[in-house]
Amino acid sequence: MTDSPLAHAPNAATDPGPVFPGARFSFQEFIGLERWAQGEVAHIRLQHREELMNYLGHFHGGVLMTVLDAAMAGAIRIHAPGCTMVTIDMATHFLGAARSQLNAVGRVLRQTRNLCFCTAEIRNEDGELIATASGCFKYRPAQAANRFTDMSTTI
């Protein structure tokens, strides 16, 4: 049995490290997410961009789900700096629509040795609740990323 990835994560008190990865350009940067930590809460902001809207002129539902997922993953990184994870399950509730800036927060509810349970919510510029989500994430050892880079590898 292997140790939990959390056992090898830097201690936030002695080595805060980067909460949000920034070494490579990712989908989150591509769509323009702004990310920061405040205490144990991850904050995400996304400005209006025409290419992120649906045909009604509101943020596309997939964009909202991306923001919620990023907020929950950010909350995990606050609790376990240096840890990577994958989304196992995510339940989303759309409560409204937004055309302007999105503001999201993500929080950790409970951590186990291999899983983390989180929530997130998005509000518009006026503070109106637009969407909520809950999710389950599995910690992923860093070395697992290299296993899938070779396309000839059989999974």
Rank of each mutant, 00 (worst) to 15 (best):
R99N: 15
E125H: 06
H60M: 07
G62H: 10
C116M: 04
H58S: 00
N146A: 13
I122K: 08
H79G: 09
M65N: 00
E121W: 09
T132E: 01
A91T: 04
C116K: 11
P141V: 09
H79E: 13
R113P: 11
G74A: 07
E125I: 10
R110M: 08
G106N: 07
R99C: 14
D126L: 11
F117S: 12
R140N: 13
A70Q: 12
C136Q: 11
A144V: 04
P81I: 02
N114G: 15
F94D: 06
T112N: 01
N146P: 08
V108W: 06
R110D: 06
H60V: 04
N103C: 07
A73G: 15
R77N: 03
G106Q: 05
A142G: 02
V86Y: 10
M151A: 08
E125S: 14
I88Q: 08
V67I: 04
I155F: 01
T149M: 09
H60I: 00
A71F: 06
L109C: 12
Y139S: 02
A145W: 10
A142W: 04
I155K: 03
A75D: 01
L115K: 07
R113K: 14
L64M: 02
Q143M: 09
V86L: 15
V63H: 10
M151P: 13
L102Q: 01
A131H: 10
R77D: 05
N124V: 14
L109D: 11
M72C: 02
H58A: 02
I88Y: 09
I88H: 11
F59E: 01
F148N: 10
E128H: 08
T66R: 01
I78H: 09
L102K: 05
T153K: 13
D150P: 04
L129H: 05
M151Q: 09
R110A: 07
F117D: 07
S152N: 06
A145D: 14
M151G: 04
I122G: 11
C83D: 10
H60C: 01
G74L: 03
D126R: 12
H93L: 08
F148E: 14
S134P: 01
C136H: 09
H58Y: 05
V108S: 09
Q111W: 02
G106A: 06
N103T: 06
I78Q: 14
I76Y: 00
V108E: 05
L95D: 03
N146S: 15
H58N: 06
T87N: 10
N124F: 13
I88N: 11
G127R: 05
A144Q: 14
A145C: 11
F117G: 12
R107T: 07
L102A: 00
F59D: 03
I155G: 03
T66M: 06
H60R: 03
M65D: 06
M85L: 14
L109G: 07
G135Y: 04
I88A: 13
T119C: 15
N103Y: 01
T87F: 08
A98P: 03
V86S: 14
G96N: 02
M65V: 08
T153Y: 12
I76E: 02
R123G: 10
R113E: 15
G74R: 00
A91P: 04
M72K: 05
G82W: 07
D89H: 13
T87H: 08
L109K: 11
R113Y: 13
E125G: 14
S134C: 01
H79C: 12
I78C: 13
V86D: 13
V67T: 01
N103A: 02
I88V: 15
G62W: 15
